[in-house]
Amino acid sequence: MFHNLLNAIDQKLHFQRASAHCDIPCGIYDPIVAQIAALTVVRMVDLIKDLEAKGGSDAAFQNSLARYIAVKEEHAEKVKHEIRVIWGDFIKPQHVEKHPETTEVVQKVLQLGSKARQTADRESAVQLVEAVNQFAQIFWDAKGIPTKRAKAPYAPTLELVYPVL
């Protein structure tokens, strides 16, 4: 009741705000977006290779190739963006102290993300998935949540690191 009264007064007088905020209001961070994006990069490389194997140069071929490349570009950049955000906003010095390899893993993700855009090299794309998995492992450990590795239930069926909730 007292809160309701203050609430009503606040509507008129606007009490000063004291922020008890976190870095983002919701505090939602999850590397799964980057993991799925990395998996998408591998999938697009596979589709590009399939298309190449089938051959052709007609409009349908050009259209499919352009779409696969565009999606690969977009998702490789998404991987880099997502990891940069978690690294910059969530990872704290104590996490790096516990996992000194964090900076190296992030650097690897960013470099492999760029390589995924520059080339259609499957091996590099698979390495990107693994680098993002390593980052996910560090992230969930920082949250105190155990992880497991399981094959993604869709193509390409590569292993991903999942939290055990």
């Binding site: 004291a18 905020h21 209001p25």
Partner: peptide, 14 residues
């Protein structure tokens, strides 16, 4: 003075 809390970093206290 009276202040209104914005954010959840002190949850569950505030």
């Amino acid at each position: 003075k009276i202040l209104r809390i914005r954010g959840d970093s002190l949850s569950p206290k505030l």
